[in-house]
Amino acid sequence: MVKTILDELIEANEFLLPGNTACPGCGSTLALRYVLKALGKNTVLVIPASCSSVYQAIYPKVSFKVITYNVAFASAAALASGVKQALVKKGYDNVNVAVWGGDGGLIDIGAATVSGAAERNEDIFVFVYDNEAYMNTGIQRSGSTPPGARTTTTPLGKIVGFKKPMSFLMLLHGVPYVATASIAYPTDLYEKVKRAKDVKGFKFIHIFSPCPPGWRFDDSKTIEVARLAVETGYWILWEGGYRDGKINLTLSPPSRPYKDPSKRKPLEEFLKYQGRFRGFDERSLKKLRDWIEYQWNFINSFT
């Protein structure tokens, strides 16, 4: 029998242990399963304040089977830089040093630190699981919250601001590897992390990770919501990076059909499951469509 990617995934060790303290239906733990399957045991995770600092469970136990270092909110990418540089100095060149955090920690408060590490092209991974708000503190808006979404600090829906296009910003830093991924496509995520492992330098992987309590949808719908984000063109899967004076970008297979707007499902399909978009008005809808348009235009300019 030919060994498929699924066989490989089944064989790969599980580094997320069951019986953690994540919410039922958590997108982030699912993403972490595949990130760690791809990275393996030879990994140091650096985790800023986030849901992951809580769902790894409580001392003296932990639900992750790799070295895990819990650090202050805005420090993660710089701290990981120090870890990596020290390991290289000590002669351990091949350890995966990976920041694992949410959009609050890595797109808002820690964004400058991520940018600094990217500019220095530190040989680290930065994984953002993007659930589009500060979920651990109880659903407050972040720079990654989309227009129109209700959070406890945008009770009428996010009116001020867009969604910070962090993966584009990373790409423009000229780092060698940037990718987006989604928990609806675990093999795509797994393979991207595997490819990133072969890249020396800064690797940024931005993972779309729906949050049932934060987005107000049923626990069982996590995958469906994530898939609809891709099928409506709201979240686009791609990978790219800088090489030889040029930024390369390719659409990943799950997103390829949606380059053609007529193939995309109506945006309302994505919105309808989510309580955070309840009372969504035309203005917000327009802003969200503009955001989608902007993303595709940006991506199409490279492809």
Partner: peptide, 12 residues
Amino acid sequence: ISKPTKGAGGKT
């Protein structure tokens, strides 16, 4: 320092 344990969050 915490050790990896199945059911670190209890019998969920």
